[in-house]
């Protein structure tokens, strides 16, 4: 190893010593588990004879068998399609509202700006499980104010937790939980733009809408890409919301999303090996989807590294 910028020995040792705790914990709790999952995904249990007695069950190499089974599993596919639909609804609605609110907050002449900003951001401080409980109770036909009002008006009452509507109800929980955080990210990016850019546009007679569409949104593209990819990573792993809503309705099955299936396979069905294969597949999809992001972050924030 080359001695880099130092004149004294302790300066070359210092960065390694400072990074040692992080590298150790990172290896133990991130690298090693990833490797272990990959290893498990290639293993299976072989049962000899009747599978009774000691040594009758042993772990052997399985090749890609677990992956083949995972890909052929219709439960996993219907869960994946459900999450795809969930993401196609969630990402545009959540990020669209976040962008709209951020642009409105950044506009001149807006009343109660601080109140709106803090109120919309507040759900960020509510864990997904708690948020799902609050909304879940609001969806319960026996407790929902919506059903109460419709009942008093003599109108038909919807069941927001029925198999046909529960997906949309869960999208709403995620929109509620995520819109404020993304709004703050976009709003802060807008505040970092020099206001002089808009001044000349205003003098030229541009409306606030035109400034938003033609100047602000194009300048926000990097922040929009970043919030999209972060939201995408979270979306693929949706777990807490459907699991909590499941306590209130039978419309959500135990394999409703791929992550719920992984959990069930690993801990309820005791099939660690297919759970491992499924989670590697999920991770691969997430990595493919977010690879563009990594390149983006490196170029934007750490241009000096190249």
């Amino acid at each position: 190893m080359a001695v880099v910028t130092s004149r004294r020995g302790r300066r070359t040792a210092a960065p390694y010593a400072f990074l040692a705790p992080a590298v150790l914990l990172f290896s133990l709790f991130i690298l090693l588990p990833v490797g272990y999952t990959a290893y498990l995904s290639l293993r299976k249990v072989q049962v000899k004879g009747l599978g009774l007695g000691r040594g009758a069950r042993s772990e052997v190499f399985a090749g890609l068998e677990n992956y083949q089974r995972a890909i052929a599993d219709s439960q996993l596919w219907s869960g994946a399609l459900r999450v795809l639909l969930y993401g196609l609804l969630l990402l545009p609605i959540m990020l669209g509202l976040a962008l709209l609110f951020a642009l409105l907050l950044d506009r001149p002449r807006v009343g109660l700006r601080r109140f709106s900003r803090i109120s919309i951001f507040m759900p960020y401080a509510v864990p997904a499980v708690i948020a799902s409980m609050l909304w879940g109770f609001l969806y319960l036909p026996a407790m929902s104010p919506l059903n109460y009002v419709l009942d008093k008006l003599g109108l038909p009452e919807p069941n927001l937790l029925s198999p046909g509507s529960v997906l949309f109800s869960i999208v709403n929980i995620a929109v509620w939980g995520g819109v404020g955080f993304n709004m703050i990210i976009l709003y802060t990016s807008l505040r970092a733009i020099s206001p002089e850019i808009y001044e000349s546009a205003r003098i030229d007679g541009c409306s606030e809408l035109q400034i938003a569409l033609r100047i602000k949104i194009p300048l926000l593209i990097p922040a929009i890409v970043m919030t999209t990819v972060f939201s995408l990573i979270v979306t693929v792993q949706v777990f807490s919301e459907p699991l909590t809503v499941r306590s209130l309705t039978t419309s959500v099955t135990s394999t409703w999303t791929p992550l719920m299936k992984v959990y069930r396979d690993a801990f309820a069905a005791d099939d660690l090996y297919s759970a491992a294969a499924t989670s590697i597949l999920l991770a691969a999809i997430t990595l493919v989807l977010s690879f563009g992001f990594l390149r983006f972050v490196q170029r934007r924030a750490f241009g000096e590294d190249r």
Binding site: V236, L282, A283
Partner: peptide
């Protein structure tokens, strides 16, 4: 970018 589930098990 590593999803939490790959780590949890």
């Amino acid at each position: 970018l590593v999803p939490g589930i790959v780590l949890a098990i």
